[in-house]
Structures are given as C-alpha cells and as structure tokens.
C-alpha cells in the first residue's frame, strides 16, 4: 500500500491543472461601481494620481493637450491593449481550439474601438525576437495559476496609459495580466512595467460581470479620420504645451487641494504611509462640486444600478446643472 502512494500522488498532481482551469468564454459588461470617474467620464487633465511616473513621463504628459489626439494623424492611433481598464466597455472573450482535440490553443480578448484584439497563446510558444514587429494587440502567452489565467505581454506599441490625459507608455512596456473569474465576476489585473516612463510597476485591477444577454452586434469598425477642429485643418500644427505652460498642471491642486506631488505621479505618494506625511497639512475641499456620488449619478440610465440613492441630501441627483444653479443661488 505504501508503495502505491507516490504513484497516486503523481497521478493527482498531473490531473490538477484540469481541475483548476476556468471557462472564460462569454461577454463581460463593465460595472462602474468602482473607479467610476476613470472608467466613465474619464480622467481629468493633470490627474496623474496613483501613477509611478518618471520625470520623463511627467514632462511628456504635461506637454499634452486634449487637442493632440484630434489631429488627423492621431485620431485613429491604436490604444493600449489593456486600455479597457480605463474605459466603459465590455469584454468579449473566446477561445481558439484545436479542431481535432478541442484543447484551448489561445484565449482571445476581443477588441473594440481603437483597441486591438488580444490573443493569449496557451500552447507554449516562445515570445518573438525583441526586434520583431509590435502589433497593436501586443504578443501574449499565458498559463493557468490555479483559477487565474496569467498572461505575459510584450511587443506593444507606444501609447498613452490612461484615457485622454497624456500619460505615456513606451513600446518597451510589458504587462503581467491576471484574469480571474469568480462565478459571474471577472477581475482583470494588470501589472505594467516600462523602463522609460514608469519608475515602479503600475498595478490596476477592475471588475466586469458576465452578461448572458449581451448585445451581439459588432464591436469593431473602421476608424475614419475627419476634421475635428476647424483651425487645425491643413495647418500642420501639433497642439502642445511648452514646459511650465500647461494651465491644467495644477488642476487637482486647485480642485481637490491635493499636494502637487500626489497629483503629478510621484511614486512615493502611492503608498499608505504617505497619508501620514500630509495628515496635518491636507484640507479636503469644503464642499463636493462634482462626482459627489460616483456612478450613482448614472441612475436611470443604462449601466446604472437599481434602487440605490446617494446619501448627500439629493445633491448628486440634481446633476451638474442643478448643482451649479444651487451654488449660484447661494452665492
């Protein structure tokens, strides 16, 4: 009997991966209960909070204007493979299977506007040469770690990290990505490293929910350029701010009283200990002026959760216009 134990143990270990893999196929809708601002309306200019940026990244980000992506040559630039963590969009995931045996060769995260489809190869192939082409969707290989699919991505293009406020990422960026499904919830965690623009790994996790009744329409379509800002047409101008001239550089300081270093992406401000250093000096704004109840402001609209109310005396339900009128009346 004792002699059989190692054999039984080996058999169990060999079978273990089959028990810990998870079916990912399906459509997962964004639920904006967390990080509403970033996933919904989008980041503010000058909001680099939570980012471990190098000085080079900060300088480049502060040269950015919201008109820069409106130029003809930039309108259809591909966005980062995992920009979905910063956008209000669904994920559609499916597998590529061996046609004879049915085993999963790759997991595919379908693309949508300006974000290319990501293929996570599960067949053990090597990453290509560092000199190989960098496609919009990068190159990714994956393996199961328990119930989590862990992917390593290289060969990405130069992009912006967040949505629309100029934080840069180089084509030397690598991602470690964890896709974890807890029944109907899908957590996607990205650990982004960049030797040029990130001083430390940038870690983000966001949650989606499986949606069996998701729309089946196309997610992708051709991007067509057009004149978005009349005075830029045929001008050759590239909108930008010179160093020290970005009027939004202090946006977070004047709006939320945040210390400048916290707003502008200094890595040490990411850590909980940083709170202790500003405990005596930080003064929160006296009143809430925007996003007072986060995603609850979406009540009644697609994506809004039912039967929840904002506990701020109804201020948020007034919407931006209503709040402004009240504020004007009280002045």
């Amino acid at each position: 009997m004792t002699k059989r134990l190692p054999a039984i143990a080996c058999a169990l270990l060999a079978a273990a991966p089959a028990w810990t893999q998870v079916e990912l196929t399906g459509v997962y809708e964004d639920r904006l209960y967390e990080d509403y601002i970033e996933r919904g309306p989008g980041s503010d200019l000058g909001d680099f909070t939570g980012m471990p940026m190098t000085d080079e990244a900060r300088a480049k980000a502060l040269s950015y204007t919201s008109n820069m992506p409106m130029t003809i040559e930039r309108q259809c630039l591909s966005q980062a493979p995992w920009v979905g963590l910063y956008r209000p969009r669904q994920y559609r995931i499916w597998s590529i299977n061996d046609e004879n045996y049915g085993s999963v060769i790759a997991w595919v995260v379908g693309g949508n506007y300006l974000r290319d489809t990501v293929t996570i190869w599960m067949d053990g192939r090597e990453h290509p040469s560092e000199n190989a082409w960098h496609p919009s969707g990068g190159f990714a290989t994956g393996k199961w770690e328990g119930n989590t699919l862990t992917a390593r991505m290289t060969h990405v293009k130069t992009t912006w990290i967040r949505r629309g406020n100029g934080i840069p990422a180089s084509d030397q960026t690598t991602f470690t990505v964890h896709l974890t499904r807890h029944e109907n919830l899908l957590t996607v965690t990205t650990i982004q490293e960049d030797p040029f623009y990130l001083s430390e790994p940038h870690v983000v996790s966001r949650v989606w929910e499986y949606e069996p009744n998701a729309r089946q329409g196309p997610e992708r379509a051709q991007c067509n350029t057009a004149n978005e800002i009349p005075y830029l047409e045929d001008s050759g101008l590239v909108p930008h701010y010179l160093p020290g001239e970005n009027p939004e550089e202090d946006f977070m300081v004047r709006t939320y009283n945040l210390p400048r270093e916290a707003a502008l992406g200094y890595a040490h401000t990411l850590y909980p200990e940083y709170r202790n250093t500003i405990r005596d000096s930080y003064q929160p704004p006296a009143t809430c002026g925007r996003y007072c109840c986060g995603w609850i402001e979406r009540q009644g609209l697609p994506g809004g959760a039912p039967n929840l109310t904002c506990n701020d005396g109804g201020f948020a339900e007034l919407g931006p216009r209503g709040r402004r009128l009240i504020e004007e009346a009280s002045e």
């Binding site: 980041s43 919201s66 956008r87 629309g164 406020n165 979406r298």
Partner: peptide
C-alpha cells in the same frame, strides 16, 4: 450621459 474612447472630462466642461 456620453462617454468616449477618449476622456470627455479632459476635452469638455462636463459641468456646463
């Protein structure tokens, strides 16, 4: 509400 592939908060004054 309308949210874009770019940040609407960065391009537009959403409270106006």
């Amino acid at each position: 509400k309308a949210w874009g592939h770019h940040s609407f908060a960065a391009v537009y004054l959403e409270d106006q």
